[in-house]
């Protein structure tokens, strides 16, 4: 029997029940996001394809752990994707630092610039708000770390910013985003943990 999956929070519980249509709907809803995340950090298209397969298997296997009261579904999915991507890069014996950094790496995210799919809007807005509050240096460091997976040491080398300051920028950026997620939880009754 297949259940109708209509809202983001319905999907993973249906996957956890083994609903075949939900397992495939997961590909519809998150395929492009997972692929795009993988492409940013994987060395090659083939590596990204392997990573995407591993990520989806992990999402399906862990679907029962999703709790909508602790965070949004897309955040849960992206958290699993990032964890798998980080694991793969470390298993491959390299730091996630091979991707070229485009000139606009430290740009803030403007809502006007982003044609994000509907299910990503909330997360894009939070990222946008957090980055807007940071200095140019802080944004650049976060972009290089979270956006492109450069190690703290590589960021320090590339930017000339002392390693301790790089760590501080990343820590403060993450704390700020976490704070905004907390505010979101208070508004919507949803938590901050994926």
């Amino acid at each position: 029997m297949s259940n109708t999956v209509s809202t983001p929070e319905d999907l993973l519980p249906a996957v956890a029940r083994g609903d075949a249509s939900a397992v495939k709907a997961c590909l519809d809803r998150y395929g492009a996001l997972i692929w795009s995340l993988a492409r940013r950090t994987c060395r090659s298209g083939a590596d990204a394809e392997d990573a995407v397969q591993e990520i989806f298997v992990s999402i399906w296997k862990n679907a029962a752990r999703f709790d909508p009261e602790r965070g949004s579904e897309v955040t849960f999915v992206a958290t699993i994707a990032r964890r798998r991507l980080i694991d793969r890069m470390r298993q491959a014996g390299r730091r996630p630092n091979e991707a070229p950094i485009e000139a606009g790496g430290g740009m803030a995210i403007s809502d006007d610039q982003v044609a994000a799919p509907t299910e990503l809007r909330e997360e894009v807005q939070i990222a946008s708000r957090a980055l807007a509050e940071l200095s140019e240096d802080q944004r650049r460091v976060l972009q290089m770390s979270i956006g492109h997976g450069l190690s703290h040491e590589k960021i320090a080398e590339a930017t000339g910013i002392p390693l301790g300051t790089v760590k501080t920028h990343i820590r403060r950026g993450l704390i700020r985003v976490r704070s905004l997620l907390e505010e979101q939880r208070e508004r919507t009754g949803r938590g901050v943990e994926a």
Binding site: L33, R82, V124, L131, L142, Q143, L174
Partner: peptide, 14 residues
């Protein structure tokens, strides 16, 4: 983890 994921979503969407 969730904060890093949200930032990654925002940067990827951009």
């Amino acid at each position: 983890d969730a904060a890093a994921a949200v930032l990654a979503i925002g940067m990827t969407a951009r």
